[in-house]
Design a binder for these strands. Sequence first.
DNA 1: AAGAACATGTAACGAGTTACATGATTGC
DNA 2: GCAATCATGTAACTCGTTACATGTTCTT
Lengths: 185, 185
Amino acid sequence: MKGYNHTTYAILGLLTIGCHSGYAIKQMIDQSLNHFWKISYGQIYPTLKQLVQDDLATVEETSQEGKPHKKEYFITSKGEAELREWLQSPIDAIPVEKNNVLLKLFFSRHQPHDHTIAHLEAYKQKLQAHYHTYETIEQMIVSQLHEEKDAPYWLFTLDYGKRVTAAAVDWCSDTIQKLNDWEEI
Amino acid sequence: MKGYNHTTYAILGLLTIGCHSGYAIKQMIDQSLNHFWKISYGQIYPTLKQLVQDDLATVEETSQEGKPHKKEYFITSKGEAELREWLQSPIDAIPVEKNNVLLKLFFSRHQPHDHTIAHLEAYKQKLQAHYHTYETIEQMIVSQLHEEKDAPYWLFTLDYGKRVTAAAVDWCSDTIQKLNDWEEI
DNA sequence: AAGAACATGTAACGAGTTACATGATTGC
DNA sequence: GCAATCATGTAACTCGTTACATGTTCTT
């Protein structure tokens, strides 16, 4: 009912898929949500605190006899209701993806062609590395986590990452080619 | 030499392509850089002030005899050098594009299929609208601005927008189909 | 006369990152 | 013993948006 930001919902959601500590949440984000979301510890810990305060999660602290300081969080039914409400709420306008490669390209008249081409080559390589990461994660899910109820949804998001990245890679290749042809004239 | 952020360079760059006021910069961004960059007035005006302070731009103020309050900015040679230095500096790591549609999809096990499908349909429509906008701008550039020296670079960035958007649209269609098939089982 | 577009600017707020601080456990 | 990994947390800072304030000019 209150209106949290998307990051808060992301954390709430992660509590439902086996992540029960700030550290586990961070790991999951870095490994699996990496292509469409990221969160730093500076957000995670204060948000978890907030969730407990607002009764959307509970916390169990392990701190007996010199044992390591550890906290386990669990979503409450109020938290689940909040999550479902967010899930069904309409999607926002597509946010602008700030792309500094395109920003530089936009102004690249002020620069020799070979510099521009070098940037595009570098960008292409980074994109290819991303693509490869998606494939690796995909294979891991298919081979090891196919029992997991959430797995089909995870594969959908990976498919998105792969397709969009592949399109960007193709664009790089074609644009590099165009710049090379242009130079020869 | 100082190290400005990308937004500052965007504004500096726009000064070189015929935008000489805060208002003109805002318009250009909303019309042409819209698919990979956006800036609000809350950033533009303070940044222009900073550029003048740092000698990267000059300002000419029109404020005689009840005339409208207007300022014209021009890049200095120091500004041009700074812009070129930024252009040739290596590109950063690809930033994570936060996508709240994918974020919801990731947790959509907690939601009936038809809700998920509805979100994807809505997303697809928004993407198609974007695609159409890119086409319109592209045709405008080809027909009216082909003399413009920067035009080829603008077309490259538009091509990127079109390709990536088309890939996302295809993904939407296919994912909706998969969800429909899944439901029938 | 009215409303849209032109035009500039600031203050408060919210989101998110980075750097720092701390300490336990595990594997080599 | 040492390094990597596990584990939690905060404060300062940067970035960017939103809401507000103000006034002009053009079009109908």
